[in-house]
Design a protein around this nucleic acid. Structure first.
Lengths: 344, 344
DNA sequence: CTGTTAGCGCCTTCAA
DNA sequence: TTGAAGGCGCTAACAG
């Protein structure tokens, strides 16, 4: 005896368009027309169909629509880790740009692993996303281009511009310069730097900015004052400890990002060194939480919300066939709060 | 002259299964069989098909597969805001539970707005998700049940158990009790409480726990020591200021969540009041960042990663037709760090 | 072992 | 204005 083999879903809902049509005594085509606006339909039938839709609680099957139309109204978004506040803000910007457009983000995480990133991107493609937003990560431009063969791609943290792929980076070198310059302006000359993971271009650029500011101010570069972190709090703790143990005096620290600064601050606190009274500290990113650390953290702001918003807006245009362009390039800015102070 | 009207996608890729079949000189069914394991196929044809797949760089269209199979291998996940570290951790747990199962999360945000939540859930359903995970929010049990008519539902922060819906809450009353009790054990008797948004059951429960601990210790409840916050940093700042301005002395604060504690800490700092030297402070949640505040925050840990993981695992079972059960109920725990200290 | 036949649910000509 | 027919890409009987 053959029994309904449909899986667990639908125990209580979701009629099909055909069922609606039958209930209303019209053809499926008519229902479809009413659903999608457009064509004129007689008032009588329209009323009947709308009644049937309501009665059956009908919702069109988006999968079927996508299959038929060849567009899924979905953008794939590759973050590196959903738990990073840094990405969270970007996601918010994407969400904002997509609101009301009918598009929805399908989010995946690459965990800073090129293989995993490529794998996730492939899955996203298999799900027929109409476009891809790649947030940072370690994919090469070639790989990005390969994906752009299938759908338009917008990437942040990469440099790349082709008809179907657009990438942009913030000026991290300038950011590093701004941070260091701020410390210099405050009279500091012995400025330590805790770098990010130097496998990332951003970390390298920030370091370059630090060196440029120093050079410009005539302060010799002392490599003993530069230690490597990893963009995470524990890295900041360890780096600060190494700095302190090295015995080379310094009055300020430029941390490659806010999380590193948090860690460094904690390490200083443990040794009874106060911020900013004894040592000035500046971060990079301006995470939302940096406004509420005690004291609030001076930092270089990365406008991640805007980055997300602009990326999504650009992609929206690209899927409409317009050329790949950016409305504006988001800019870094110095946010002076209370962890830095004038020397003496 | 009629021209290809397919949209921008596919400028360079994605062959169809039928094309693969033709290239390999077999039928579509054979290709499908090879793709899905199962049936036996001659080595010759298998080789030909695999060659064709590679040559054409073929990836099955997941939309078509889902439509045909009646399962999308997608779970809808309703968070309230992607930018909250609290939800981020839960998402991580869900991601972990889903890894390797073939299921992927489709994430939407409800922003603590019942209308918006319901709307998002409907869209998720339209996309044919196979199950729903609802993380907190303000939907009523009735509404959740209604969604459970269509697909299995697992919800956190609700209480509800039916064949196709499972919900669980952590014991927030106990959490509030634990926090207050910790302060009491340290010798504090004048303990202030900054509540969360009292429209949330969690906030009410934590307050109840606070009162119970007080009562149990024979400390009279003083309503002047209880002010309302909103689970966010600014609320913590304002609440702490109100507490301070009221002039009723206290030696410790129990903040309804970590973000509130951050805000309160900042307000104290601004007035030169040190934590924990002058005032002890305890939060609730144990956000990842609480490990790196200066000093690290004593708090009541909510195992959100586990919450996400357990929810996803339960849902996984439910879509397989198994009854709605939870492996275990995650428990709150006291995490003593450095913002609380013995009185005197 | 393999091909043919039918759709999944919807949209879109094409005729009427 | 409306319906019939065909097909998006894939899978699942059912024959051979």
């Amino acid at each position: 005896m053959k029994t309904k083999s449909k899986p667990a879903r639908d125990a209580g809902g979701s009629a099909t368009l055909l069922e609606v049509a039958r209930a209303a005594g019209v053809s499926a085509a008519t229902v479809s027309r009413i659903l999608n606006g457009g064509a004129r339909v007689s008032e009588a039938k329209r009323a009947a169909v709308e009644a049937a839709i309501a009665a059956l609680n009908f919702k069109p099957n988006a999968l079927a629509q996508s299959l038929k139309r060849g567009r899924s109204l979905t953008f794939g978004v590759l973050t590196q880790s959903v738990d990073s506040p840094f990405f969270a803000e970007t996601l918010l910007g994407i969400e904002a740009a997509l609101a009301g457009t009918g598009y929805e983000p399908l989010i995946a995480s690459g965990h800073w692993n090129p293989q995993e990133e490529a794998d996730r991107l492939r899955r996203l493609l298999a799900r027929q996303v109409d476009g891809l937003i790649v947030l940072f990560g370690k994919l090469s431009n070639d790989e990005l281009q390969r994906f752009a063969l299938h759908v338009p791609v917008v990437a942040t943290g990469h440099e790349l511009r082709s008809p179907r792929a657009l990438a942009f980076r913030l000026d991290n070198e300038l950011g590093g310069y701004m941070a260091t310059r701020h410390l210099l302006d405050l009279g500091h000359r012995d400025i330590a730097h805790i770098t990010g993971d130097l496998a990332h271009a951003d970390a390298v650029d920030r370091l370059a900015g630090y060196r440029r500011a120093l050079a410009e101010a005539g302060v010799p570069y002392d490599e003993r004052l530069v230690v490597q972190g990893n963009f995470k709090e524990p890295g900041g703790v360890m780096a600060a400890n190494r700095l302190l143990d090295a015995g080379v005096p310094f009055t300020a620290i430029f941390a490659a990002n806010d999380q590193t600064a948090y860690g460094a601050h904690l390490a200083l606190y443990r040794r009874g060194i106060r911020v900013p009274d004894d040592i000035s500290l500046i971060g990079f990113d301006d995470l939302p939480s940096s406004l509420y650390t005690t004291p609030p953290l001076t930092t270089v702001r990365q406008p991640m919300f805007d980055v997300g918003r602009l990326a999504a807006q650009a992609l929206l245009r690209m899927v409409e066939g317009e050329p790949a362009t950016l409305d504006e390039l988001p800019e870094l800015s110095l946010v002076v709060r209370e962890t830095t102070r004038r020397l003496r």
